[in-house]
């Protein structure tokens, strides 16, 4: 574990901290410029995460709604995002969680403006922050 940690730390410094480990959940979050710039439809967002290569890792995926909520800090706003992330975008982000009321057309989106979440049409183009780590 320790050599891995040192390697990760070195890698994130060398590669300009493109991802961030959340100690509390063990999840690693994409945190590079693309988080602020890239917007995708739901199905493209899933593909985008699966094909993403950041900090030498290739096992990225779109986070579930519960996972994305673990980096929300409701004591903050605009963005309602935990301390420590470089990319502080107050926009709507895709989650992998399908909306049970209409799973073919809608999925859950979370806004980092204040931390609100709602179902959204899958063809909408929204921001994406991919995650890696076991679930």
């Amino acid at each position: 574990m320790r050599p891995l940690f040192v390697w990760l730390l070195t890698a994130s410094i060398l590669f300009g901290a493109s991802s961030k480990l959340d100690d509390r959940t063990g999840l690693v979050w994409q945190d590079n410029q693309a988080v602020a710039e890239v917007t995708k439809s739901y199905s493209d967002a899933k593909k985008y995460c699966e094909q993403l290569k950041v900090d030498g890792f290739e096992d990225w995926r779109l986070p579930t709604l519960s996972e994305l909520y673990t980096i929300v800090d409701m004591r903050r706003e605009r963005p309602a995002l935990k301390y420590g992330f470089e990319m502080r975008v107050e926009e709507w982000f895709w989650t992998a969680t399908l909306f049970a009321g209409d799973p073919k057309r809608e999925a859950w989106r979370l806004s980092f403006r204040y931390g609100e979440a709602e179902p959204s049409r899958q063809e909408r183009t929204l921001h994406v922050r991919c995650v890696r780590g076991s679930r």
């Binding site: 409701m74 049970a100 009321g101 859950w108 204040y114 931390g115 609100e116 979440a117 709602e118 179902p119």
Partner: peptide, 12 residues
């Protein structure tokens, strides 16, 4: 903050 249990939607 509130949660609407019709869908699970969260809002203020």
């Amino acid at each position: 903050w509130t949660i609407d249990f019709r869908t699970g939607k969260s809002f203020y």
